[in-house]
Amino acid sequence: MAFALKGVAYITGAGSGIGQYAAYSLARQGVRSFALLDRNPVTKTVTELKKAYPDISIKEIELDVANEAAINDSVDQTVKEFGRIDYALNNAGIGGALKTTDQIDMDDFQRVLAVNTTGVWLCQRAQIRQMLKQEKRTDSYRSYRGSIVNTASMYGLIGPTLNVPSTAYATSKHAVVGLTKADAIAFAPRGIKINALCPGYVATPLVISSMSAGSVMEDERVKVPIQRLAEMEEIGDCVAWLHSDASSYVVGASTVADGGFTIQ
Rank of each mutant, 00 (worst) to 15 (best):
A69E: 14
A52G: 02
L37V: 14
I185E: 05
S244T: 14
D237F: 00
A97S: 09
T100G: 04
G214H: 04
A213P: 00
R32C: 04
K99Q: 15
I56Y: 02
P54M: 15
D139Y: 03
Y201K: 04
P41H: 10
A182S: 15
G96L: 07
Q29G: 12
T204K: 01
K80R: 08
S248F: 03
S25L: 08
G156I: 10
A182D: 10
A66V: 00
A240E: 05
I94L: 13
R221I: 11
S33K: 15
M217G: 03
G93W: 02
V115G: 01
G252Y: 12
V202A: 08
K223H: 02
A253Q: 13
T12K: 05
I71P: 00
D55T: 15
Q134A: 15
L36A: 06
G95N: 14
L132E: 03
T262S: 13
A196F: 08
Q227R: 11
W241P: 00
F261A: 11
A188W: 04
L98C: 04
N40E: 09
Q29P: 11
E218N: 08
K59Q: 12
K181E: 13
A168C: 09
G7H: 06
G30F: 06
L242Q: 07
G30R: 04
Q103F: 08
A92K: 07
N116S: 05
G236Y: 01
A168S: 13
M154Y: 01
M131S: 03
K99F: 02
S74Y: 02
C198A: 05
N91E: 04
K51E: 15
R145T: 10
A69M: 09
L179Q: 11
P41E: 03
V112K: 01
N150G: 12
R39N: 09
L37T: 14
I128T: 12
T171L: 08
L122T: 13
A92Q: 03
T12E: 01
M131C: 07
Q227Y: 07
V256S: 06
V256L: 05
Q20S: 14
M211D: 12
A35K: 02
G260D: 13
D55Y: 04
Y144E: 01
S209Y: 11
S143D: 10
A9F: 02
N90A: 01
A97H: 07
L122W: 03
T262W: 07
Q127M: 10
G30K: 06
P160K: 00
T180M: 13
D107W: 02
I235T: 11
Y155R: 02
V176L: 11
V164I: 14
V112F: 02
A70H: 06
V46M: 14
C123T: 14
K99S: 07
S57I: 00
T47F: 03
G13N: 07
K6I: 03
Y144T: 03
L113M: 15
M131I: 11
T100A: 06
V79R: 12
T180G: 04
G7P: 00
P199H: 13
G191A: 12
I226T: 05
D105K: 05
D38R: 15
T151S: 12
V149N: 00
